[in-house]
Amino acid sequence: MSNSDPSPAMDFLGFSGKKYLVMGVANRKSVAWAIARMIEQSGGEVIYTVRSEARRESTAKLLAGRRVIVCDVEDQSQIDSLAGTLASENVELAGLVHAIAFADYSEGMLPFHETTRKQFLQAIDISAFSLTAVCNAVRDRFAQDASVVTIGISTTRMASESYGFMAPIKAALESSLAFLTKSFSRFSEVRFNAVAAGLLKTSASAGIPGYVDSYLYAEKVIPRGRAVETDEVAATAAFLLSSRSSGITAQSLVVDAGMSINYFDAGVVGAVTAASVD
């Protein structure tokens, strides 16, 4: 579903008449959904993938009238099936959005050194390696100058307990951008970038133990006094998907509303030191 006749202003990003694969819509709060809406509003066509039949049913109303394909990225056969479907329909992709992440916190938020091998490997398979697996499978579906965008985090070097063991996973995802760019350059000009998002108010993040408190803290540290909005991350992703960003590849663009420059805000420091004295 797309706007078939966008105005010149709406088509500033050049999405009109092109097709994009968006992976990771779970509900209307999803970053993937915000990105997809921007593509559609600018005249592009979106093909959606969801992880299961149950997810397809839960998003049926949200994605009504759109093309939805089930693809669990833990299952290589489903990735191959997705690629086969796109090939049989001779689909050419102008871009791909990879907004997929998962970590098993069923035992609560444990110290990092207690992370199990099973937890870590599953998380890196779904959240990081899946980007490489999907892009390899659909490589013949990409336009020569297609753009791939994934969703990272604003820093992978901050040891925040509220993010568990996902920062090293996202670091692997971020590093893979350079290697994908280089290897794909042998036969194309496909670009690979990430939007490194600050703390967002999404359904997925709300389920992470301690995340809400970190989100509220972020609002205190961000210079403007309010957290990053999902649409701000989506707008950056849309830019990276467009030809307007043709000179950008293998990069992570930080969208944190300035949080990383303001950790030592006098008001925040004062509140902490006053509390420690009490």
Rank of each mutant, 00 (worst) to 15 (best):
A87G: 13
A87I: 14
S88Q: 13
S88A: 15
S88T: 06
N90E: 15
N90K: 14
V91F: 03
V91N: 02
V91H: 04
E92G: 09
L93K: 04
A94V: 00
G95T: 01
L96F: 04
L96P: 08
L96I: 08
V97M: 05
V97W: 03
V97L: 06
H98E: 01
H98N: 14
H98Y: 15
A99D: 00
I100M: 02
I100V: 15
A101N: 02
A101T: 09
F102T: 01
F102Y: 15
F102W: 14
F102D: 08
A103P: 04
D104A: 06
Y105T: 05
Y105R: 04
G108H: 13
G108T: 06
G108Q: 10
M109W: 11
M109Q: 15
L110E: 13
L110F: 09
L110H: 15
P111T: 00
P111H: 11
P111L: 05
F112E: 00
F112C: 02
H113C: 11
H113I: 12
H113W: 06
E114S: 12
T116D: 05
T116C: 12
T116E: 10
T116A: 05
T116V: 03
R117A: 08
R117Y: 04
K118H: 00
Q119F: 05
F120D: 04
F120T: 03
L121Y: 07
Q122W: 03
Q122Y: 00
A123T: 02
I124F: 00
I124E: 08
D125V: 00
D125N: 03
I126P: 05
S127F: 02
S127K: 01
S127T: 10
S130V: 01
S130Q: 02
S130K: 03
L131S: 02
L131P: 01
T132F: 13
T132A: 07
A133W: 13
A133H: 14
V134E: 02
V134N: 04
N136F: 11
A137E: 09
A137M: 11
V138P: 02
R139F: 05
R141V: 08
R141C: 04
F142L: 14
A143M: 12
Q144Y: 10
D145E: 04
D145K: 15
A146H: 12
S147D: 08
S147H: 00
S147M: 09
V148S: 10
V148A: 05
V148L: 09
V149E: 05
T150G: 10
G152T: 13
I153A: 10
I153N: 04
S154I: 08
S154Y: 15
S154K: 08
S154F: 15
S154P: 09
T155E: 07
T156V: 15
T156C: 11
